[in-house]
Nucleic acid binder design. Structure first.
Length: 278
DNA sequence: CCTTAGACCTGGAGGC
DNA sequence: TGCCTCCAGGTCTAAG
């Protein structure tokens, strides 16, 4: 589910709800959730920690506590919910895999239907890119150091589709299947265009489109197609999608019918006339 | 270097 | 209702 705009929306929500609060108790009930240590060790280490700062790098959420960098990836379905009481709804309760008691009596619940999400706990690092879970993570899509030149440098020798490169978190961090389609459309490029055929101008258009689209999506609190929500509020950017999940609808620019294809086995939407294959 | 299939998981939607 | 297949905002691995 969450790409950069959704993770950023969650980050802002949690910062507002939790900043400065102390974790007074932890219960992790899905052992695999704790990725880099036994769940019991993560429970012990997080107990007593204060939630001091809330960061995001790509699709990773990084909660900075007194002694640790607590890294979470929600993958497809993970959600953080701040609740007064444990979830009453049986469906939510069933998929609640961790509960963090807070000093104000509230509970931070991690809910994840598909159990894909993971959490890592590390001693504090000066640079988040140095954390093992984030070692392979490239520049965040909103990082000022990400320029057209920088993207060109990273991909110009590669013979993979541009959409595949955009989904590669070591190339740019934070773009997923929804925004990759929207970025290719905005840049006027067929998502199957081969990276080595693109020039600096193409890369500059891609980076510019990426930053604009991601920032706009953040303003609309992310995109909800199936299940994304932050604090039980869905996003609204699905109302502004130009190609993703728009199969059969007319292109907003040329009225051609939006098509759905597969790129690297993932559903991909494009306007066959506005987006040129290079 | 690149592609593909399969794993990891669960549930919703649609066909019959 | 039920059963079956396909699909899903992600990422990792093995194999060719």
């Amino acid at each position: 589910m969450p790409e950069a705009p959704e993770v950023e929306t969650v980050r802002r929500t949690l910062e507002r709800q939790l900043k400065g609060h102390q974790i007074t108790g932890v219960s992790i009930t899905h052992p695999k959730l704790a990725d880099n240590m036994p769940a019991s060790e993560m429970e012990e280490k997080l107990t007593g920690e204060h939630l001091n700062a809330f960061h995001r790098l790509g699709k990773y959420l990084i909660l900075e506590t007194d002694h640790y960098d607590w890294v979470a990836h929600m993958r497809m379905e993970g959600k953080f919910l701040v609740m007064d009481e444990l979830p009453e709804d049986e469906k939510i309760r069933k998929h609640t895999h961790a509960v963090f008691d807070l000093d104000n009596g509230k509970k931070l619940c991690y809910v994840d239907t598909r159990k894909f999400g993971r959490m890592d706990l590390y001693d504090k690092a000066k640079d988040f890119h140095a954390l093992p879970a984030l070692k392979k993570t490239g520049l965040d899509v909103l990082d000022q150091k990400l320029t057209g030149e920088a993207l060109y440098h990273r991909i110009h020798k590669r013979n993979i589709p541009i959409k595949t490169a955009l989904l590669d978190q070591s190339v740019i961090a934070g773009i997923g299947n929804i925004y990759a389609d929207e970025i290719c459309f905005a840049a006027g490029l067929d998502p199957r265009s081969v990276c080595s055929h693109l020039d600096v101008a193409d890369c500059t258009r891609i980076v510019q489109a990426a930053k604009e689209i991601i920032e706009e999506a953040i303003k609309h609190k992310g995109t909800t197609i199936l299940t994304f929500s932050s604090d039980n509020h869905p996003g609204e950017f699905q109302n502004f999608l130009k190609v993703h999940v728009q199969e059969g609808k007319p292109c907003s620019i040329c009225e051609s019918t939006i098509e759905r294809i597969k790129v690297n086995n993932r559903s991909t939407y494009l306007c066959p006339s506005c987006q040129k294959l290079k």
